[in-house]
Every structure is written in structure tokens, then in C-alpha cells.
Simulated assay, not measured.
Amino acid sequence: MKITVKAFIYSFLFICLGSAAHAQINMPDSVRVGLGAELASATGTGFGTGVTTDAGGTAAAAYSYGVGLVLRGDIPVMSHLYATATLGYISFLPTGKSSYSQQAILKTSLPDFNTIPIKVGLKWLLGNRFYVQGEIGETFLANKKELYALYGNSVTWSPQIGLVLPLKKRHTYIDAGLRYERTESFYNDSNHNTFWALHIAYEFNL
């Protein structure tokens, strides 16, 4: 599965590069590049390394919130439709009860859960401002050894809705969106890492 996803990503990026050159000539818009910030909130108590039960009998979440940066390119394919390529870095911070997680040793708090998602997808503009977007790719674990993970990368997919606001300066925009993201486990179990993320970015046309 992982090899298939990688092959898909590389093929997609190759097609996007060709589409970008074509778009510069035939499309009403040019390639857009955005640099943004994200605030993420993990869902449930099983994010990252999973959880056990503390002395009080309550499940303890190892990670709850994350912050990150993202670089995205939007390549016009046809009117209102863009191919997207996204590179990010999101760091999830341990909660106060992280020492009760499955990977904690002798009740020692875990390090940050640092991820590098690389995704490709499509963005469809509904009118001039609203959009829906879907992406698929892989998330790499930046500190695999510290977290005693079995795998350094895992399949990721994410749908997103958002709003593009043109600024006074021509060909510049603010992109604000809400995304749900799911990544397969790094520990060879049935756990999934899922979170919601608020995304805001400054975009400009090349």
C-alpha cells in the first residue's frame, strides 16, 4: 500500500509540473503558492501512541493539540479546478497525562509527536471564494526513534473546506480552511491518528 501511494504521488507531481507549464499559456489563472499556519486538535484519546488506563480508571490522551506550518501549491487544471501539492510540519504537544500512554517508560512524559505530511490532491472552487478540497499522501514521523515507532511513514488522507479572500494587492489572497485528517498507525496496530485543523495562509500568484 505504501509503495503504491508513493508511486501515485510521484506520478501526480510529474503530471502537475506538466500541467503548470500548460496552465501558464491556456488558463485564466497561474500557479498559486501559499505559506500558512495551522492549529490542530486531536480527536479521541488514541492519537499518536495510543493510551492505557491510569490509576483512576480514566483513559489518558497522550496528545491533544498541535501547531504547524504548511507550504502549498495550487496548479490550475481547468476553470475553478486546481491540482494541489502540500508539504507541512506539525508538532503535537504531550498532554498532562501523557506519562500514562502505552509508549511511556516508567511514567515518563513523551516527547512531542512531530510529523511531516506530504500530500497531493484537488481543489474545486465553488464560485470565486468557497472551495472543497481532498488530498492523499504520506505522513513522515520526524522523531521516530524518540517515540519508539515501528514505521517512519504512514498513509494519510484529508478533506478540507475553505474560503479564499482576495487582498487589495493584485494576485494575493488569504486562504482560510478547516480540515479533517487521518493517518494510519506508526505502531502496527489498529489505531488511527485523526485530528481537525484550522488552516490560514497567505497566497500569491507566480
Rank of each mutant, 00 (worst) to 15 (best):
F92M: 00
E203F: 11
F204Y: 15
Y10V: 12
P117F: 07
A176F: 14
I25L: 06
K6W: 08
F130Y: 13
Y173L: 13
W124C: 05
F113T: 00
G50D: 12
T49I: 13
G177C: 12
E138A: 09
H22L: 08
A23N: 03
M27G: 03
N143H: 02
E135W: 00
T86N: 14
N193P: 11
R129I: 02
P94S: 06
I161S: 01
G137V: 07
L93W: 03
I161H: 01
S30M: 03
A201D: 09
L93R: 08
L13D: 03
F12C: 06
T58H: 08
A7R: 06
D112S: 15
T4E: 04
I105S: 08
M78Q: 15
T58A: 09
L163P: 02
F8T: 08
E138L: 13
K107D: 11
L163E: 03
L150W: 01
L206T: 13
T43Y: 08
G18M: 06
L110Q: 10
V67A: 02
H199V: 12
I174H: 08
A61Y: 01
F8V: 13
L150K: 11
S185Y: 04
A197D: 01
L13K: 02
P166I: 02
R179V: 12
I116M: 14
K123D: 03
L39C: 07
Q24V: 04
V120C: 10
A83H: 05
G48F: 08
L17E: 02
E138N: 10
N143Q: 03
F8A: 10
G152T: 07
Y202T: 05
T45A: 13
S19F: 05
L71V: 10
G66D: 01
G73M: 13
H192A: 08
L81E: 09
S158K: 06
A40M: 12
P76G: 14
V5M: 12
D175W: 13
N128I: 01
S79V: 14
T172E: 14
G44W: 09
A37F: 15
Q133L: 11
F92H: 00
Y10C: 04
R32E: 11
A201R: 13
F130T: 04
G34I: 00
S185D: 12
M1G: 12
L206V: 15
D189A: 05
S190A: 14
V67D: 00
N143A: 04
N26F: 11
T95S: 14
A42M: 10
Y63G: 00
A23D: 00
Y180C: 11
G127N: 07
K97H: 12
F47W: 12
C16R: 00
L106M: 09
I3N: 14
I116K: 04
Y173F: 15
A60V: 04
F204W: 15
